[in-house]
């Protein structure tokens, strides 16, 4: 016992605490990599942002029914871009899309979107299209928060921004819907996408 306690004092200081700290860091890093899915594509977000800006320009000043269709087409385009860019980034980070963290991220990303789809159908049937911009931003934001809960911190933060904008959209005049969508799906995606691409590798 005396040996264990005094040895560091007698000889050159042995950085046993540094070794322990290094062990703890290794544990933390392993736990993090084992549980988080970080292949959120920054440039993909930027690309999606641009498709949204294009959709917004096309939809500006059109009848609500046509605007609705244009934004639906935009959602489909965004989904395709998202699929390919997520796949590309996860390959680059050698994170399998079938891995548990990836599946968990997808599983927690989906429910708010499905809720949004169901509500959209109901609201469209009742010709309440003016509710949709706020609803879409709010629920997409919720999906990003839940899906990105175990990703880099900026992802859930982006989700919160979408949710805030969505909530604000309900307070704005109905005619601003298209602009709010452009601001959300366009500008927010472009801004956050650029930050993620710069800081988190593409």
């Amino acid at each position: 016992m005396a040996f264990a306690q005094r040895a560091p004092k007698l000889t050159k200081p042995i950085p046993i605490d540094r070794k322990a700290a290094d062990n703890l860091r290794f544990i933390r890093d392993t736990m993090e990599r084992a549980s988080s899915f970080t292949a959120v594509p920054g440039w993909g977000g930027v690309a999606i942002g641009f498709t949204a800006v294009v959709a917004g320009i096309l939809a500006q000043g059109r009848a609500p029914e046509l605007q609705f269709r244009i934004w639906l087409a935009e959602a489909a385009a965004a989904l395709i871009v998202a699929f390919f860019t997520v796949r590309a980034k996860s390959r680059r980070l050698s994170q399998s899309l079938k891995s548990r963290p990836a599946r968990r991220a997808l599983l927690s990303f989906m429910p708010p979107l499905l809720a949004g789809a169901a509500l959209s159908i109901v609201l469209a049937r009742h010709s309440m299209l003016f509710v949709l911009p706020g609803l879409w931003l709010l629920l997409y934001g919720a999906a990003v928060v839940t899906g990105g809960a175990f990703s880099v911190r900026i992802v859930p933060f982006m989700g919160l921004c979408f949710m805030t904008l969505g909530a604000a959209a309900f307070l704005l005049p109905q005619t601003w819907g298209n602009l709010v969508l452009m601001l959300g799906f366009g500008a927010l995606h472009i801004v956050f996408g650029t930050v993620i691409a710069r800081r988190h590798g593409g």
């Binding site: 062990n23 544990i27 392993t30 084992a34």
Partner: peptide
């Protein structure tokens, strides 16, 4: 082994 245990600590199973 520390790596294996750390990874399993945050996953049901791997």
């Amino acid at each position: 082994r520390l790596g294996i245990v750390s990874a399993l600590a945050v996953n049901d199973s791997l």
